[in-house]
Amino acid sequence: MVEPYLRQSALVHRGLSRAAAGAMSGAGIVLSERPFRAMVNLRGEASDAGFLSAVRAAAGVELPLQPNTTQRAAPVTALWLGPDEWLITAPAGEERVLVPALRASFGERHAAVIDLTESRTVIAVSGAHARDLLAKGCTLDLHPRAFPVGACAQTGLARAGALLHLVDEAPTFEITILRSFADYMWVWLADAAQEYGVALRTE
């Protein structure tokens, strides 16, 4: 197996581990990168009970059928992306287990399993002003009545495509973006967060 130290996160050049020493108290926004999360894209028929049970068997999670929602069976989360598309996320490295398990489970069924772990990274935006910050670059209604904990949405953020997922009441949004946009998004978020006070954190 390849040496893990050779693996580099999309924001490694930002030196976040050194920046983490900065003061956190009073910051309205905390930004962090959550790199290397396993991400497996699934395509299949929501109306096909066999497909749904195959996913349950291989990944241990129910696929959410309600638009813009997620299902979680720790440590695996399934996010609704479209009427025939989902994203399964799990801790780093799990893609090596999930991808073959799902493929085997589908057999000859017309469904697709695509490993997108390397394509993306996650930036977590947390703190009292997290909604205000995202509203500067996103047209979605993020009010708790419209976007409760557990909600997810594919949308635009600061003119880049983004998958938003509200994971807790802090509130903490996990923003999944294409890896190449990570540096741009990080700079954008840090600049837009300036009026609230911003702290950086390593995971």
Partner: peptide, 11 residues
């Protein structure tokens, strides 16, 4: 019809 009401800029 799948995601609900969204801003025109997403389309």
């Amino acid at each position: 019809p799948f995601c609900g009401p969204r801003d025109e800029s997403e389309f």
